[in-house]
């Protein structure tokens, strides 16, 4: 199955996943996702980002700053490697490339830097509702393949918002029957205030302060696999086994 053909969650399904080349050799992990902000304010994921410039700040922003200072003279110190979505054959548990790994990683082009963002800059951002009330933090980004695009891309269609840290959901948001019982109860209890905001309800994103202003309150959290027909899902499971 190819996840890229249906809605998926950026952090859960793409970030930190293994990248594998056409010869089944391991290439790297996907450390972050490149976001392009269009003039109308919509956001699109255009590439996987790889390397210390995006990995170190995700480990700790303090370390990221030290890491930058260690090579201040290097012009590409903060430019990560990039894998274009066009190079991806399919996404399953892993991210499979169309080509061999030699020379597959290229530094991000300094052009168009003004419209480029990182998904990680969005993760953890404060989400504020119409009445300035704090709704939670961005826990994940919901993505869907762009229709009718010449270049393959993933549109950001919504934000998963809740308390706690991105990734702390451990995948328990997706199905009600995932065991073990004790762990599910604890994780779900910690995340009982979670919800979603659709991309169309995002009023503005303040990247410097790490804040998202929403036009509405939180909608109900939907399961990304719920958009797949249940019978189709069983088929997929069967196929995978």
């Amino acid at each position: 199955m190819n996840r890229l053909e249906r809605p998926l969650d950026g952090l859960l399904h793409l970030m930190d996943r293994q990248v594998i080349d056409s010869e089944d050799l391991l290439v790297c992990k996907c450390d972050d996702l490149e976001l392009e902000q269009h003039e109308d304010g919509t956001l699109t994921v255009t590439a996987l980002l790889v390397g210390a410039p995006v990995w170190v700040p995700r480990v700790s922003s303090w370390l990221g700053e030290r890491w930058r200072r260690l090579g201040g003279a290097q012009s590409d110190r903060q430019r990560p490697y990039r894998i274009d979505l066009a190079d991806i054959a399919q996404v399953s548990q892993e991210i499979h490339l169309r080509r061999e790994r030699d020379g597959v990683l290229r530094r991000q082009d300094p052009e168009r830097a003004s419209v480029r963002r990182l998904v990680d800059d969005l993760l953890g951002a404060d989400v504020v509702g119409p009445g300035d009330e704090h709704l939670g933090n961005v826990l994940d980004v919901r993505l869907a393949p762009t229709r009718d695009a010449r270049d393959p891309a993933l549109d950001l269609t919504g934000l998963l918002v809740g308390r706690g840290r991105p990734g702390s959901y451990l995948g328990y948001d997706r199905s009600d029957d995932q065991g073990p019982w004790l762990v599910r109860r604890i994780v779900r209890r910690l995340h009982r205030h979670s919800g979603m905001i659709s991309a169309t309800d995002i009023d503005e994103i303040d990247w410097d302060r790490g804040m998202v202003r929403a036009r509405t309150g939180l909608g109900e959290l939907t399961n990304v696999d719920a958009t797949v027909d249940p019978s189709e899902r069983d088929e997929l499971r069967h196929e995978r086994s």
């Binding site: 451990l170 995948g171 997706r174 073990p180 762990v183 069967h238 995978r240």
Partner: peptide, 28 residues
């Protein structure tokens, strides 16, 4: 590992059964 062994997304029909989860939680 305990979490992933329960994840349908990774495991399909091979997720932990009752016994594996009972023992898994006990050992946790």
């Amino acid at each position: 590992i305990l979490v992933v062994a329960n994840d349908h997304d990774y495991m399909g029909p091979h997720v932990n059964g009752r016994l594996a989860n009972g023992l898994g939680t006990f050992y946790l």
